[in-house]
Simulated assay, not measured.
Amino acid sequence: MSSTPYPALSVLDLVPVREDQTTSDALAATRALARAADGLGYRRYWLAEHHNMPAVAATNPPVLIAMVAAATERIRVGSGGVMLPNHAPLVVAEQFGLLEAAHPGRIDLGIGRAPGTDPVTSWALRHGAGGVTDEAVNRFPDYVDHVLAMMSPEGAALSVGGRTHELRATPRAQGVAGVWLLGSSDFSARLAGEKGLPYVFAHHFSGSGTAEALDLYRSSFRPSEHLAAPRTLLTVNASVAETAAEAEALARPQLLSMLALRTGQPLAALRSVEAASKVDLPGPHQDVVDAMRSRWIIDEPAAARERVAALAAEFDVDEVMVHPVAGAHEGSDPGSTPGREETLRLLAG
């Protein structure tokens, strides 16, 4: 038995959509997964922001957060993350001000800088006004400050026409959502440190540069009213089953979906485990899959838990956020996600 301490665990959910599912089915599966995570003692349940993707229904984190928070009792629910250049800071502040008021002490606002979609959809998100402009991306640090100020009980002061006006996200806030910065680059790591905010590294997506980004965050950290010392979290893709062979089979649909994304192939809903097992890949594509797979945790329970503990120890993080990537067999209930629920159960121990 390992003496490595086991970290706190959380969940990242992209609300995946399988070939046998409608959007309604995928949402039902997410509610079931969130209730399972709540009962198993997971600390957080975060929902991503992605747009115009056939296999992902996580298009609107605030709506999903409201749904999940209402379906659970204890777990913190948040965004992983809201892609701030896509949205007006006041709208984000208002959304999370209301969520925090409805579910006090249970809401997290994870903020990212990437668009989370293709250029055409980025353009549409900004009401046809030029998409996610360079200005929106360049002003990301200011927008983070604006969201923080407007969510606070004191609100923000806005000067217009020579007069100062008060601007609050919600009339009488008693609490504020926990704010985290997300990233897979030096930019967000340094910014989180300079602003004294907790930091999440997207290890599940990037898989490289993790140690450098976390070191930069810690070396840049300045204590703030939000946080006295650095606080870190990283994400990891995981498929866990009673046997390593079953975990491999369950992970293959997601691996094929990520292969399509990274090689410019047409995107589609996730295949069943049986359909994915019949796909033969050319050598170069198999190399891409093997490289991704090596960074994922795909194993039986004891070995998978050992790897989670080792990952947390290697990067000295306070928490590991599991993105459960296990697929489903043909004939599974479309409103459920048995492989993902089993992954969470087996990792929780």
Rank of each mutant, 00 (worst) to 15 (best):
P7E: 13
A8F: 10
S10P: 14
R18C: 08
E19K: 02
D25M: 09
T30D: 15
R31C: 15
L33M: 12
L33V: 10
A36I: 03
A37K: 01
G39S: 14
L40T: 09
W46V: 14
E49I: 14
N52P: 13
A57V: 06
N60C: 14
P62S: 14
A69D: 09
A70E: 03
R74Q: 10
G78V: 04
G80K: 01
G81W: 07
M83F: 11
L90E: 08
A93V: 00
A93P: 09
E94N: 14
E94W: 11
F96V: 03
G110H: 12
A114D: 07
D118T: 12
W123E: 14
W123G: 10
L125A: 02
A129F: 11
G131E: 06
V132E: 07
F140C: 12
A149D: 06
E154C: 06
G155V: 00
G162C: 03
L167V: 07
G183M: 01
S185Y: 11
S188Y: 00
L191W: 08
G193W: 08
K195S: 02
G196S: 09
P198A: 14
F201S: 03
F205D: 04
G209P: 13
T210S: 15
L214M: 04
R218V: 01
P223N: 09
R231E: 15
T232V: 15
S239L: 12
E242Y: 03
E242R: 11
A245F: 08
A247L: 12
P253H: 03
S257W: 10
M258N: 08
G264D: 01
Q265E: 02
P266T: 10
L270W: 05
L281Q: 09
V288Q: 01
A291N: 14
R293A: 02
R295K: 03
D299L: 06
E306D: 14
R307N: 01
R307C: 10
A310R: 06
A313Y: 04
F315T: 13
V317G: 10
P324R: 05
A328D: 04
H329G: 02
S332F: 00
D333A: 01
P338Y: 02
P338R: 05
P338L: 04
E341S: 00
L344E: 01
G349W: 04
